[in-house]
Design a binder for these strands. Structure first.
Length: 860
RNA sequence: GCCGGUGUGGCGGAAUUGGUAGACGCAGCGGAUUCAAAAUCCGCCGCUGUAAAAGGCGUGUCGGUUCGAGUCCGACCACCGGCACCA
């Protein structure tokens, strides 16, 4: 064989082989166990970035591993092709979003192919294809018929200069990112999907899926199930006339006697009514309507309020309570009003302290005393005080007693509440799937019939910064006879909520899904960024249940197992600029000098030799100019090296720091592996492996081989810690390299070790393993080889090493027979010279023997 | 602000169920090979200490549980992800 590792030839040949033999075309076969492996499909933003490479390498490693386990594997790929960046590019470069998107797809498809991923490309689609989104439109009309869709007023970010709706991302410090104008909150009618109808099932079914606990916890908290009481307060205007009762929800009815004021949202009807003859309040409401709608912005805003002059009557005492407007109460949330108990809620406490509202404790502290409220609220539940007949009751009893009293009076009921809100799916944008609805001359709202579908998006458009182009295209929106089309498009989360199902039967042009979906679903392993832990993953779960209830599929959950991969990060370098900003330099253009211990001293720009500042390690991004181009790395080292480095440098869930020298190390290992095989083949023909009559050295290498099979199988199959699997294979390769027994028996043991290395690595570095497997004389291609089988008998040992501790500190190591009994281990440990030194003059109080591990002698 | 996470040598990380802290790799240092360099191979490599041992210290900080804590508990600090129109 060629003594030199030539990655480019090898990779070209392997990829050609897989393509000619259609190795990765997945065919439904009820007699075989299926494995559906899916990585989150990319948004075609231009070029592949390192985050994609990491995501798709993980998926490919698992797919190829499962294939070697004998499973019928399906790994598809497609494009999440609708979204804002295409519109932004269109505004900047005067390119229609469709052609920009398709060009990007072509570029990125080529890049994916150069990485050798085992995709079934026959299932590929882009979500901007009408053949895809027509089914989404069709399904939406069915949901309308089912009563799972409705239209209601909702708040959006309004740019008063560009006259357009802005995404939260486009609101920077309360201003429009293009116009710089102060953003206003504006109410417009929008389409909603009733995800809240499924809140309970979305919560309960988390028990049945194999997801990271942290993701499940985030989803649970997002759904936010709580048990509380909904109650109403009578209200009066400042002149004493009765108004509509004010309804609130509380999870702490036990604190009811401590309510000292009420707070309503700025857009609550009560607030609006109070503002009609109160200009100062009107100004405050206008101030509250400024800025973005995002919860992060609202929650970090300075908490402000103003009295309405109206009052509420306490349902039990009849006491008059002032009603405030507060900028932290949201109309979207619950009833848009809260009862405030400043003694036992920190936010209420801060508000009351600021505005001089009374703070009255009604819950005792842990010692049963009146809590100290000088520096904050006392939020822990406890026994009631200052609450009349309810005094002394604990949280549970008080909850029930007060709820029962309110219920008797017809003023309130126990209620289960969810934090989850319905899903607003309408966007006032062009580059998305048109919402299939029309409006009649008498104000009718009618979902389109099957015959009227699909509503194709017109592709030749001029996009500018002022609103949706569809609104300005009568040829699209005007249907004649006074009928007009809806010009809003779907949230792009709609497309990504069911694409995994469409991959099962992407070629069906007469139905959304067919029985093939039931063969492949659920996805056995789904891989993607942790940033999708809530929204995308929750919407996809919801959509799955909708499709199930409509009879399209049978599965309850889309993704049985989930792997959330970490970010790819890299060092940043900059120079301060004259205007106080920073000019960022790409790590590829910077050289770092180090001291004699390898610590970085300083960095210089290669181009001019002048120093640059080190800005710390950050997520790879355009803004910090610290992105490393995957293509440049593939062109330099080959795909296998890039894949190996990405899998080796960190476990998949953690962030991965890019390191050029780490990549070189990975490349070096592949060269060494190549040479290992070449030298082994040159050493002669191995004989038969006689596992019963091996020398000690042969037995030791063979044990290492099978220990490695054991570890790598567990690491890849169960733990998905590819880094430790690779480390184990490196150890085995190092051991095989040191092994210089060239007898026919020795060569047989070496052959087994080397073939094991090649097979265990083949999911990770498939090209080089394809070539090496063939060099090792196998007719069958590596891609069709089975995963190595573990021989338990090869793991047996005669002696094992134990450590001896004295008071928990390591003092000696012992080599003992594997079957040694406790007494002999204890006496060997006691008699060890160094142990004796530490026992000298002390009394042995206890000896702990952990079989196979250690002995701890406790002395005093 | 709220929800979730992370923190171990000069660096990436390993230690899977409470039981040897630092596997594997990178960087660095020393040597071999070479006319020389690259490549390759061999050795050393937490801090401190010693002639060499022994020993002491050490997993963000402070405290606790335990024969034994990177791992469990409490408080704190720093950083990261998400917060419903970025995808």
């Amino acid at each position: 064989m060629d003594a030199q590792y030539k990655p480019f030839e090898i990779e070209r040949d392997a990829q050609r082989f897989w393509e000619t033999h259609q190795c990765f075309k997945a065919i439904e076969d009820a007699s075989r166990e299926k494995f559906y492996c899916l990585s989150m499909f990319p948004y075609p933003s231009g070029k592949l970035h390192m985050g994609h490479v990491r995501n798709y390498t993980i998926g490919d490693v698992v797919s190829r591993y499962q294939r070697m386990q004998g499973r019928n594997v399906m790994q598809p790929m497609g494009w999440d092709a609708f979204g804002m960046p295409a519109e932004n590019a269109a505004i900047q470069n005067q390119v229609p979003p469709a052609s920009w998107t398709h060009q990007n797809i072509d570029t990125m498809r080529e890049q994916l192919k150069s990485l050798g991923f085992a995709y079934d490309w026959s299932r590929e689609f882009a979500t901007c294809d009408a053949e895809y989104y027509r089914w989404e439109q069709w399904f939406f009309t069915k949901l309308v018929e089912q009563g799972l869709v409705y239209k209601k007023m909702s708040t959006v970010n309004w740019d008063p200069v560009d006259q357009t709706v802005l995404a939260n991302e486009q609101v920077i410090e309360g201003r429009g990112w293009r116009s710089g104008a102060l953003v206003e909150r504006k109410e417009i009618p929008l389409w909603f999907l009733k995800i809240t109808d499924y809140a309970e099932e979305l919560l309960a079914d988390l028990e049945n899926i194999d997801w990271p606990e942290q993701v499940k916890t985030m989803q649970r908290n997002w759904i936010g199930k709580s048990r509380g009481v909904e109650l109403s307060f009578d209200t009066r205007s400042n002149d004493g006339t009765d108004l509509e009762p004010l309804s609130v929800y509380t999870t702490r009815p036990d604190t009811l006697m401590g309510v000292t004021y009420m707070a309503v949202a700025a857009d609550h009807p009560l607030a609006r009514s109070a503002a009609t003859d109160n200009p100062a309040l009107g100004d405050f409401l206008a101030e509250c309507a400024q800025g973005g709608t995002s919860e992060a912005e609202l929650a970090t805003r300075e908490k402000k309020g103003m009295p309405t002059g109206y009052s509420a009557l306490h349902p039990l005492t009849g006491r008059e309570l002032p009603i405030y407007v507060a900028n932290f109460v949201l109309m979207e949330f619950g009833t848009g009003a809260v009862m405030a108990v400043p003694a036992h809620d920190q936010r209420d406490w801060e508000f009351a302290t600021r505005y001089g509202v009374p703070i009255e404790p009604v819950i005792a502290d842990a010692d049963g005393r009146t809590p100290d409220l000088t520096s904050g609220a006392h939020v822990e539940p406890g026994a009631l005080i200052n609450s009349g007949e309810f005094d002394g009751l604990d949280f549970e009893a008080a909850f029930e007693a007060i709820a029962a009293r309110l219920s008797e009076m017809g003023r309130g009921e126990v209620k289960t509440n969810y934090r989850l809100r319905d899903w607003g799916v309408a966007r006032q944008r062009y580059w998305g799937a048109p919402i299939p609805v029309k409006y009649g001359p008498e104000g009718q709202t009618v979902p389109l019939s099957d015959a009227e579908l699909p509503v194709s998006l017109p592709l030749e458009v001029t996009v500018d910064a002022s609103g949706s182009p569809l609104k300005k295209m009568p040829e699209f929106s005007d249907l004649g006879d006074g009928w007009v089309r809806e010009t809003d498009t779907f949230d792009t989360f709609m497309e990504s909520s069911w694409y995994f199902a469409r991959f099962c039967c992407a070629d069906n042009d007469s139905a959304m899904l067919d029985e093939r979906a039931d063969y492949w679903l659920p996805v056995d392993l789904y891989i993607g960024g942790i940033e999708h832990a809530i929204l995308h993953l929750l919407y996809a779960r919801f959509f799955t249940k909708l499709m199930r209830d409509f009879g399209l599929i049978q599965t309850d959950e889309p993704f049985q197992r989930l792997l959330t991969q970490g970010m790819v990060i890299a060092e940043t370098y900059y120079r301060p600029t004259a205007n106080g900003g920073k000019e960022w330099f790409n790590p590829a253009d910077v050289e770092v000098s180090r001291d004699d211990k390898g610590r970085p001293l300083n960095a210089t720009l290669v181009a001019d030799g002048q120093p640059v500042e080190m800005g710390g390690i950050e997520k790879m991004s355009k803004s910090k100019n610290n992105g490393v181009d995957p293509q440049a790395m593939i062109d330099r080292f080959g795909a296998d090296t890039v894949r190996l480095f990405m899998m080796f440098a960190a476990p998949p869930e953690q962030s991965l720091e890019w390191s050029d020298s780490g990549v070189e190390g990975a490349h070096r290992f592949l060269k060494r592996l190549w040479r290992l095989v070449a030298e082994h083949l040159a050493a002669g023909e191995p004989g038969r492996l006689e596992s019963e009559s091996l020398s000690d050295e042969q037995r030791e290498l063979r044990r290492k081989t099978h220990e490695t099979i054991h570890k790598a199988s567990d690491d890849i199959g169960r733990r998905t810690t590819f880094n430790t699997a690779i480390a184990a294979v490196m150890e085995l390769a190092n051991a095989a390299g040191r092994f210089d027994d060239t007898s026919t028996g020795g060569l047989a043991v070496a052959r087994e070790a080397i073939e094991t290395c090649v097979l265990l690595l083949s999911p990770i570095t498939p090209h080089v393993c394809h070539a090496l497997w063939s060099e090792l004389g196998h007719e069958e291609a590596a891609v069709d080889a089975s995963w190595p089988r573990l021989d338990e008998s090869a793991l047996a040992r005669d002696t094992i090493e134990l450590v001896v501790q004295v008071n928990g500190k390591l003092r000696a190591r012992l080599e003992v027979a594997a079957d040694a009994d406790k007494e002999s281990i204890e006496s060997q440990a006691m008699n060890h010279e160094n142990v004796q030194r530490h026992l000298d003059g002390k009394t042995v109080r206890k000896v702990i023997v952990v079989p196979g591990k250690l002995v701890n002698i406790v002395v005093g």
